[in-house]
Computed example of a mutant assay.
Amino acid sequence: MSSRDPADLHESIRATALQFLVQANAVLKLTSPDLEVRFTCTWRPQFEQDALYAQGRTKPGPKVTWVTNSAHNTDLPETPRGDAEAFDVGVFEQGRYLPGANGRELALYQRLGPIGEKLGLVWGGRWKSSPDFPHYERANWRTQR
């Protein structure tokens, strides 16, 4: 089962992710005290990544990922669960998840991207072919192990 726990983030990104959450919440609270940013995914097991990849290809539904090997499902043998080098966030208003489905909601996610970038994270909102506005990952996670 996927995790939302920052403890399941690799130590190379955990402190930055927590700092991002604090800064992102501070920025959104200036817009409205009813807004909150939360982690929606840190570590994801490989079988869930495979199922997400199958969606829109061999299983019904829209495509939601373009990779079978994600920074969400990196794992080291010496740790019990996972070592994600990416996290997804959600914006919530009075406890209700805002998926970015309209201009107002999308603008909230777009306000968060530069915060992650200033902290040295790669923001999925900058990806040209398939932007992923809630996604942040450690730069060069594939090569810096």
Rank of each mutant, 00 (worst) to 15 (best):
R4V: 14
E93G: 02
N73C: 14
A107S: 13
A17W: 10
L98H: 03
C41L: 06
F39I: 00
A15E: 08
N102C: 09
D132P: 00
S3W: 11
P45N: 05
P77E: 12
F133H: 12
M1A: 14
A139Q: 09
S3L: 09
P60V: 13
R96G: 01
P99Q: 07
L106W: 02
P77F: 15
S130I: 00
D8H: 15
N25I: 12
S12Q: 05
L76G: 09
D5R: 11
E137Y: 01
R4W: 07
R126Y: 06
P131E: 07
A101Y: 03
Y136V: 04
A101E: 11
L35C: 04
Y136L: 08
R111S: 10
A26E: 13
W43G: 08
I13F: 02
L108C: 04
P80A: 15
S70Q: 11
L112W: 06
P134E: 05
Q46S: 05
H135F: 15
P6M: 07
P33A: 13
W123C: 04
E137G: 06
P60H: 08
Q46W: 05
E36M: 12
K128V: 12
T74W: 10
R38I: 07
C41D: 13
R81K: 13
S12F: 03
V27L: 14
A51D: 10
I13M: 10
R44G: 01
G103A: 14
R57N: 11
L108D: 03
P77Y: 14
R57G: 02
Q23S: 05
E105S: 03
T143Y: 10
R57D: 03
T16F: 09
G56I: 12
D75L: 14
L108M: 04
E48R: 04
L30W: 01
Q19M: 06
L106T: 00
F92V: 06
G82M: 06
H10D: 15
T58R: 12
N25T: 07
P62K: 15
R145N: 12
W141D: 04
A17P: 05
W43V: 02
G82R: 03
N69H: 13
N25A: 12
R44V: 13
L106Q: 00
S129L: 01
L21S: 09
Q49A: 15
L18P: 02
K59Y: 06
T143W: 09
A17D: 07
R38W: 06
H72G: 09
G120L: 09
A86E: 11
W66D: 10
L121Y: 01
A15F: 04
P6K: 08
P114G: 05
L18C: 13
Y53H: 12
F20K: 02
K128Q: 12
